[in-house]
Amino acid sequence: MSGHAHAQGDGPEVYFQYEDIDQQQESYVVGMWAFLMTEVMFFGALFLIYTLYRWKFHDTFFLAHEQLNWKMGGLNTAVLLFSSVMVAFAVHFAQKGKKTAQLICLGMTLMCAFGFLVIKSFEYGAKGDHKLYPNYTFEYGAHDKDHKVESWWDDNLPAFMHIEKKEQHGDPKNAKLFYSIYFTMTGLHGLHVVIGIIAITSLMVLIIIKSPLITDYVPTELVGLYWHFVDLVWIFLYPLFYLIPR
């Protein structure tokens, strides 16, 4: 590679535009934060939309949210928090130069990410069977609580994850709005989880093949920053969608 001012022993090289390795590494982290700021703006607009409609149609939003399974949402919260802890350990071990421990932590994070998506697919699947997708199939208020809706996703849930079935009350138009926002925000969050899976998998492969791209802990820290942000979004999504007060 051209343009390297000097190398830092067995550490990363310092490129010509930087004064030293500290400045170079700071620029990587600042770049990642600049990207995360755009993510804050992206999700910020969605949170504003949620706030606005929740304020306008609070009663129906409360009634519609009772169809969501707060236990599954809670389990997903626990899974994501645990994955964040694992990423923090991965960065810790990367800084200490302990590659095996780092890879184990990243692998655990990856498993949590897949676990999150599996739980989410059970939620989404059941919502589809209950005709709560906000499209032409949407039917709200058609079933009372004794009406059994056949759903493979519900039937295959562990017993402790079942919640008491509630009747569907409230204005169907506003309930559809609630589910539109719910699927948009949790869907986009799920997309970020998928991107996180790709990033973590790529990082692990690069570490395993001893790629020259990975010369220090900074790539792990950058992937970690992204994953913590994914966790951060869910920290707010969970109480706002699954635990709406009356």
Binding site: Q8, G9, D10, G11, D20, I21, D22, Q25, A88, F89, V91, H92, Q95, K96, G97, D216, Y217
Partner: peptide, 14 residues
């Protein structure tokens, strides 16, 4: 210090 020690960065303790 991170491994190598030439460029200190904070390591969050376990």
């Amino acid at each position: 210090l991170t491994k190598g020690g030439a460029h200190p960065h904070h390591v969050l303790p376990q």
